[in-house]
Design a binder for these strands. Structure first.
Length: 546
RNA sequence: GCGCCCGUAGCUCAACUGGAUAGAGCAACUCCCUUCUAAGGAGUAGGUUACAGGUUCGAGUCCUGUCGGGCGUACCA
């Protein structure tokens, strides 16, 4: 519809002497006030300065020349400072409703990103412990953004990047060893900065079960570290699965060392004089890219900092032919990505292909008090524990319901009191309610399959409002995908559910004249479909009974 | 000090990327279950969008400054 409105406005604009630049962007919006119609354009106001004319005058001229299909548009009005307001024709609404029913589970999909291959990298937690609430936001945002992109036609891969080498992993191994020895009765202390979580003991138990005390004399940390990694990764995978998340690939940082791309990266940077040696370390001239300081790529110990493999890894992604790479990470990593982009650019890649979604921290609120967490100190709440308390659907919903860019307060109490105060249930309830009605309709009426419902019977204002709301679904998906903001979909679904509830109260289905029963059932069914499709994108179940 | 993000109803947050009268949910108050699920609905109250300037037809949204909060600012990840 928006495209149609753009095209007819564009036609009418030919009367003015305008360059293409001036009219490239014809904005169509849904007005806040219903009396302003179903769609509005501010084009006249935007052209006022270019044309040096009164915007209302421009609007009048546009409308005068406007040729539109009366099957689609019922009326066009000029209002306020120069808005052009459109009202949709009923026939158009009925046709579109019919279309929703025909498209069913596919309604809302588009091919806007057809043939685009997109890699979404998210979670990417190193296997040093179970996923915590902090990772939860990352995981859910990444997965939902991936879903949204798939619905707009892109071919999406989900990737988990990790590092199982380095100091943290050695520390993990040492922590397991200490617990192992302790459990076997040896006097030993957990290393300074060791991992104190209960899960370390469980890993040690596992080692005892498999090896009894055979590892007591072992010098290397590997048996402890490897076992820990294996158990923790299994745990992470099962947590993700529980949240309805399935990765397409796991990328080990080790790969960019082994295939030589680390060395290659440094070599190219040196050739371009963007890397140099100082104080025994290798530096990246990030000042060339607007930073205050240069950045160390390789420490004087010979060990690269994480920035170097990060750059090589992103080059690797682009080498794999992705048109767009999206990284999801927390605000604490905000400083690293400009360096990665600079690195990518220096290597000759198009930096605009890397897109970053930064989300702000999660504050867990329990018993009305904020709860600070740290993996190493072990006073964290794992995602699994959270899901034990509130369930997977609620967990996903809470992580999705806010703008990624603002702090998220996750009130466990509110989430748990799920019954009444929880917004997730409002959506699921609306869906279940519709199915409950449809079941009854099915019992009490038998409609001929060939007998098309007469949608023109849907003339109540609650019915019209509901149809209009349903029709917005595709563009909401589009905007949520473009902006990488899943909460827009939630806002929409809540609005839709609320509009449906008004319809539910105003318009009975059972007991009405048969044609009306059929038409309203069709509308209810379309609503359930959109709710189910939307919840599906969010990774939340759409129960038919509650 | 510098960089990024945030500041909207008592609380948690929206506001379609600059549009028309700033909206929801909790909490408070008043009503509504012989009617397809009351996990619901109708209504009342609650605001100088932190503050001060600026840009323009038009600002919660953009720019500058101030105040307040979060996160960074390592040869840690």
């Amino acid at each position: 519809m928006k495209d149609y409105l753009r095209s007819i406005i564009n036609q009418s604009l030919h009367q003015f002497d305008l360059s293409d630049d001036d009219i490239s962007e014809i904005q169509i919006e849904k007005p806040n006030q219903p009396e302003h119609g179903d769609a509005a354009s501010n084009i006249a106001m935007n052209l006022a300065s270019v044309l040096k004319m009164n915007p209302r005058k421009i609007a009048e001229q546009i409308v005068e020349e406007l040729k539109y299909d009366e099957q689609k548009i019922q009326s066009v009005e000029i209002a306020g400072p120069g808005f052009i307001n459109f009202r949709f024709a009923e026939n158009y609404l009925f046709n579109q409703l019919d279309d929703i029913l025909k498209q069913g589970a596919n309604f809302g999909k588009s091919d806007a990103l057809k043939n685009q291959r997109i890699l979404v990298e998210f979670v990417s937690a190193n296997p040093t412990g179970p996923l915590t609430v902090g990772h939860g936001r990352n995981a859910v945002l990444g997965d939902t953004i991936a879903n949204l992109l798939e619905w707009t036609g892109a071919e999406v891969d989900r990737e988990y990047y990790f590092n199982n080498a380095g100091r943290q992993m050695r520390m993990l191994g040492e922590s397991v060893r200490a617990r192992y020895l302790q459990l076997l009765g040896h006097e030993t202390k957990l290393p300074e900065d060791g991992y104190k979580g209960e899960y370390i003991k469980n890993i040690a138990q596992e080692l005892i079960a498999e090896n009894s005390d055979n590892l007591v004399e072992v010098e290397e940390v590997d048996p402890f570290k490897d076992k820990a990694e294996q158990i923790i990764f299994n745990d992470i995978q099962s947590t993700l699965k529980r949240m309805n998340i399935e990765m397409d690939s796991f990328f080990n940082e080790k790969e960019v060392y082994e295939d030589g791309s680390i060395n290659q990266t440094v070599k190219i940077l040196r050739e371009k004089d963007l890397a140099y040696d100082k104080d025994g370390a290798t530096w990246f001239r990030t000042t060339e890219f607007g930073k205050d300081q240069d950045t160390v790529l390789i420490k004087s110990s010979g060990e690269p900092t994480y920035r170097l493999p990060d750059i090589a890894y992103h080059a690797n992604k682009l080498d794999r032919g992705y048109d767009q790479c999206i990284d999801v990470f927390g605000a604490d990593h905000i400083d690293t990505y400009p360096d990665v982009l600079s690195g990518i650019e220096a290597l000759g890649y198009d930096r605009s292909k890397i897109d970053v979604v930064v989300y702000q921290f999660v504050t867990l609120v329990k018993d009305g008090k904020p709860f600070k967490m740290s993996t190493r100190k072990a006073n964290f709440i794992t995602l699994d524990e959270l899901m034990d308390e509130v369930g997977a659907d609620v967990t996903r919903f809470f992580f999705e319901m806010r703008d990624p860019n603002t702090h998220l307060e996750f009130d466990v109490g509110q989430a748990k009191e799920a019954g009444e105060k929880n917004p997730v249930f409002y959506l699921q309830y609306a869906h279940a309610r519709i199915h409950s009605i449809l079941r009854k309709v099915e019992q009490e009426y038998t409609f001929d399959v060939e007998d098309q419902p007469n949608l023109e019977l849907l003339s109540h204002e609650s019915e019209t409002a509901l149809i209009k709301s349903l029709l917005r679904f595709s563009e909401i998906i589009q905007s949520a995908a473009d902006s990488r903001e899943p909460h827009r979909l939630i806002n929409y679904l809540e609005d839709l559910a609320s509009i449906f509830t008004s319809f539910y109260h105003d318009c009975r289905i059972l007991g009405e004249e048969e044609g009306l029963v059929q038409a309203r059932s069709a509308l209810a069914k379309a609503t359930a479909q959109v709710l189910a499709n939307g919840l599906g994108i969010l990774g939340i179940s759409a129960p038919e009974k509650m």
